[in-house]
């Protein structure tokens, strides 16, 4: 565990707190993509199946349970909560997320490090996480004025991915035999997807005005 990894995990946790805060405090999920949230739920379920049969550390296990719990809570609020579900902008959230699931599954079957059930599902979760933000990014472009909490949620998610890259660079230079090409390539693609968003986020923040993605 290094400082970049810890900061990355805490930023990820904070992003989920910000999103849950927005939903619970404002009783609204305006601007939030349910498709992205459902993809994250799939990512966490397929990646954290190892909770059942392997143990890395208490830290890892607790974080996995928290990520799973928060992902399902968010999906519950957006789809089933009697007030919040009416604030979901269905017509703005039109990205065909099933293509992302299918594409990630095909890629995981073709490119993996071991052809076993759990290994392929784990690899699938790595590929799917890389593209899971796309429905949210497309939805932000269509939303117009983006509220602070939603903008900060996406910003924190992007920060978390950036910190993971720094963590990999640190680990690669300090650990022997540390090599995870599938994770690195997916992670770099995932982080690159935020570049556009970061540009407009920082620009609007600098000019002190409401976030709009043209």
């Amino acid at each position: 565990m290094n400082v970049f990894r810890l900061a990355g995990d805490l930023t990820h946790l904070l992003s989920l707190v910000v999103l849950l805060l927005k939903i619970v405090a404002t009783k609204s999920c305006r601007g939030v993509s349910a498709k992205t949230q459902e993809l994250y739920a799939i990512v966490f379920v397929t990646r954290y199946l190892d909770l059942l049969f392997s143990f890395v550390s208490l830290y890892n296990s607790v974080m996995k349970v928290v990520f799973l719990g928060s992902a399902f809570s968010i999906v519950y609020f957006m789809r089933y909560h009697k007030v919040v579900r009416h604030t979901y902008d269905r017509e703005l959230d039109t990205f065909r997320s099933s293509f992302l699931v299918a594409g990630s599954m095909v890629l995981a079957l073709l490119i993996n490090s071991k052809y076993t059930f759990f290994e392929v599902l784990w690899t699938f979760s790595i590929y799917l996480e890389a593209v899971a933000i796309l429905p949210q990014l497309v939805m932000l472009q269509r939303t117009g004025n983006i509220d602070n909490l939603t903008g900060n949620y996406v910003f924190l998610l992007g920060m978390y991915r950036g910190l993971y890259i720094l963590n990999w660079i640190y680990r690669y230079s300090t650990e022997r035999r540390y090599w995870q090409m599938i994770v690195w390539v997916s992670g770099i693609i995932q982080t690159a997807l935020y570049a556009d968003f970061f540009y407009y986020y920082l620009k609007c923040w600098n000019e002190n005005r409401t976030l709009v993605i043209p």
Binding site: R5, D9, H12, D50, S54, V56, S57, N60, M63, K64, F67, S113, K114, F118, E119, W122, T123, Y164, N167, Y178, W179, Q180, M181, I182, V183
Partner: peptide, 10 residues
Amino acid sequence: QMSREGHDEL
């Protein structure tokens, strides 16, 4: 190449 077993990140 590190597989799922060697992966200790979240």
